[in-house]
């Protein structure tokens, strides 16, 4: 178990390091970051000033090591546009995004796992067909369009839910659905396929032959094993949601990291852009690592060797 954790930690660390390099080099995609930062109307003196103050005149490896060293201490630099500490801005915006993504994944899992289990218990039944239809339709709905449609019907026509810039829990309902529904088809299909496979396994027959109650067979013996791949998928999808929140947050004007990213990109605020990509990637790495740990807990074949 210790070996497993260390191995995963090592990989996570290496991935994080690589991601930081890619993220850092992002600002050089356009060529000269000082020119990009200064804007089109800037004079040569202004560009030189920015180059000096941001240290873009130093060799790139030195810049990277400096940036990484500060980032490790929690200092992500200053925003050129907002004139604020980037870490501070990100920390104030992060909670909204985490709440949104958390609600979204909660919505997705509470919808898709029971549906997938029900579909697997009775293949080709009405509920199975319903689940399949939902999956096929869900996979084809563009999330931003779905968000606007929901806004139109639930917010404008029926006036059931607030449509934007609301920090109460009702304000998170539509965004969470818009962000979460896209995950449901995948999770549902995986749950269904896993349950179908497990329910036909020999150990389920053993459990039935012991005379265990159907619910015990289903939840203790079947779901526990079928859920293991779902955990990994849910973690990956949660990571995607953090990135995908950019679309939903900009539609519902939720003051989170996604919305910040959108504003930042439009302003061309390079250091802030770097920082956001880095933070979201690190979150993804953290979440998938936690999912690996949860799976090790669920599956003794990983845990006990």
């Amino acid at each position: 178990m210790v070996k497993y954790i260390l191995k995963r930690l090592g990989v996570a660390f290496l991935v994080a390091l690589t991601v930081s390099m890619i993220t850092f080099s992002l600002i050089y995609v356009s060529g000269d970051p000082a020119v990009a930062l200064a804007g089109e109307a800037a004079s040569n003196e202004e560009i030189e000033h920015i180059r000096k103050s941001y240290g873009y005149d130093r060799p790139i490896p030195v810049q990277y090591m400096d940036w990484l060293g500060r980032a490790l201490q929690g200092d992500l630099g200053r925003s050129h546009y907002l004139k604020e500490d980037i870490s501070h801005v990100i920390l104030t915006r992060l909670p909204n995004t985490l709440i949104l993504a958390g609600c979204a994944i909660a919505f997705a899992l509470t919808l898709s796992i029971p549906l997938g289990v029900a579909a697997a218990i009775r293949p080709n039944s009405l509920i199975d067909r319903f689940a399949l239809t939902l999956a096929v339709v869900g996979q084809a709905l563009p999330s931003f369009w779905f968000a606007l449609i929901m806004m139109f019907f639930l917010g404008i026509q029926l006036r059931w839910l607030p449509i934007s810039r609301v920090e109460t829990w009702q304000g998170f309902i539509m965004p969470a659905i818009a962000l979460g529904y896209y995950v449901t088809p995948g999770v549902m299909r995986l749950t269904r396929a896993g349950m179908l496979e497990v329910l036909q396994s020999d150990y389920i027959r053993t459990a039935k032959a012991k005379g265990l109650r159907p619910l015990t067979v289903l939840f203790k013996h079947a779901l526990r094993n079928a859920i293991i791949p779902v955990v990994s998928l849910a973690a990956v999808q949660f990571g995607f949601m953090l990135g995908g929140s950019i679309v939903i947050e900009s539609i519902f004007a939720i003051n989170g990291l996604g919305f910040l990213a959108w504003e930042t990109i439009q302003r061309g605020d390079l250091p802030m852009m770097q920082a956001i990509v880095l933070v979201l990637s690190l979150f993804y790495i953290l979440i998938t690592f936690l999912a690996d740990m949860l799976n090790a807990f669920l599956d003794p074949r990983i845990r006990v060797t």
């Binding site: 396994s201 150990y203 027959r205 459990a207 032959a209 012991k210 094993n225 599956d299």
Partner: peptide
């Protein structure tokens, strides 16, 4: 009445002791 199956490798649930 109980039963013993022919596949011992797969007849036990891997997740429990």
């Amino acid at each position: 009445m109980s039963m013993i199956f022919q596949e011992p490798m797969t007849s036990l649930n891997p997740a429990y002791t």
